[in-house]
C-alpha cells in the first residue's frame, strides 16, 4: 500500500488544500443554491417551477436532450465501430474530428450551426426551419455531446475478442444477429456510461443552444437559458429553483454514472479472472 494515514503537519496541510479547494469551488455553490432556493421553504420553488414558461422550458430541455441522446447513441456506436473495426483512409482524421466538441467553445459551435443551417447556409432546409427553432436546439445539444458514446464504446470494442463473433458466423448467424446477440451485450455497459455522460452534457448545454435556438421564451428556451434570463430579470427565486432542479438531476446522473462504472469494472474483472 502506498496510502498513509496523515500524521505529520505537511500531510494535514496537503489534505487541507485539497478539501478547501473542492469545498470552495464545488461544494459551496451547491450548498448556496440549495440554501437560497429553499430560504422560504418549498412552496415558492414549486410555484415558480409550475409557471407555463418554466414547464415549457423543461419540456424543451427534456425532449431535445432525449433526441440528442438517441442520435448520439446510434451514431456514436456506428462511429466507434468504424474506428475500431475498419481500416480506411482518413481513419485518424475521423478519430480527431470526433473530439472537436470537446475543444470547441459551444458558442462557436452554435455559430457554425447558424452558418451551416441559417439563411443561405449550405444545408438550409426549405421546409422546416432549424435555426431559432427546436431542431436547432436539438442539433446544438447533439453537437456538444457527440463524442461521449463513441469514446466510451470505442475502447470496449477495441479490446473485445472477435473470435466469438467469428464462431457465430460459422454457426450461420448473420452480421446483424451477431452484433445484436454477441457484441451488444458485451459493449452494453460502455454504451450506458456513454449515454449518461451524453445526457449530462446535453442537459446542461447553454452556449450553443442559446446561439442556435435564440432563447425565444415559450418556444426555444431551455432550462439553462431560463436560468440565464431569470437572473437578468432579477427573478431570483425562478433562477434558484431551476438551478436546484438541474443540480439535483446532475447529481443523480453522477450517482448513476458511478454505479455503472463500478459494474463495468466488476464485469471486466470477472472476465479477466475467468478467461484464459
Amino acid at each position: 500500500m502506498r496510502e498513509i494515514r496523515p500524521h505529520k503537519p505537511l500531510h494535514f496541510l496537503i489534505l487541507g488544500i485539497a478539501l478547501v479547494y473542492v469545498a470552495v469551488l464545488l461544494l459551496a455553490p451547491i450548498v448556496s443554491i440549495i440554501q437560497r432556493a429553499l430560504e422560504n421553504g418549498f412552496e415558492p420553488v414549486i410555484t415558480s417551477l409550475s409557471e407555463p414558461n418554466v414547464i415549457h422550458a423543461l419540456q424543451v430541455t427534456f425532449l431535445m436532450t432525449l433526441g440528442a441522446v438517441l442520435l448520439n447513441t446510434v451514431f456514436g456506436i456506428i462511429i466507434a465501430w468504424v474506428l475500431t473495426r475498419q481500416r480506411f483512409r482518413g481513419r485518424r482524421i475521423l478519430n480527431i474530428l470526433v473530439d472537436i466538441p470537446f475543444v470547441f467553445s459551444p458558442v462557436i459551435a452554435g455559430y457554425t450551426l447558424i452558418v451551416l443551417f441559417g439563411r443561405s447556409g449550405w444545408l438550409t432546409p426549405t421546409t422546416i426551419p432549424i435555426v431559432f427553432a427546436l431542431p436547432g436546439v436539438m442539433l446544438a445539444k447533439t453537437f456538444v455531446s457527440l463524442p461521449f458514446v463513441t469514446r466510451e464504446v470505442g475502447p470496449v470494442l477495441a479490446t473485445l475478442d472477435t473470435e466469438p463473433e467469428q464462431a457465430a458466423y460459422t454457426m450461420g448467424a448473420s452480421q446483424w444477429t451477431t452484433f445484436r446477440r454477441i457484441v451488444l451485450p458485451n459493449i452494453w455497459p460502455g454504451i450506458m456510461y456513454g449515454v449518461v455522460l451524453t445526457l449530462a452534457r446535453a442537459l446542461g448545454e447553454f452556449g450553443a443552444v442559446s446561439v442556435v435556438g435564440g432563447g425565444i421564451e415559450g418556444k426555444t428556451e431551455t432550462a439553462t437559458m431560463f436560468v440565464f434570463r431569470a437572473l437578468n430579470d432579477r427573478n431570483d427565486i425562478g433562477a434558484y429553483s431551476m438551478s436546484l432542479l438541474l443540480g439535483v438531476t446532475a447529481i443523480i446522473v453522477l450517482i448513476v454514472m458511478r454505479l455503472l462504472r463500478r459494474s463495468v469494472v466488476r464485469e471486466q474483472a470477472a472476465y479477466v479472472n475467468h478467461s484464459g
Binding site: 475478442d161 473470435e163 466469438p164 467469428q166 464462431a167 454477441i182 458485451n186 472476465y271 478467461s275 484464459g276
Partner: peptide
C-alpha cells in the same frame, strides 16, 4: 477456437 470463444 483455441480459446473456445464461448459466448460469455
Amino acid at each position: 477456437f483455441q480459446n473456445y470463444s464461448l459466448f460469455r
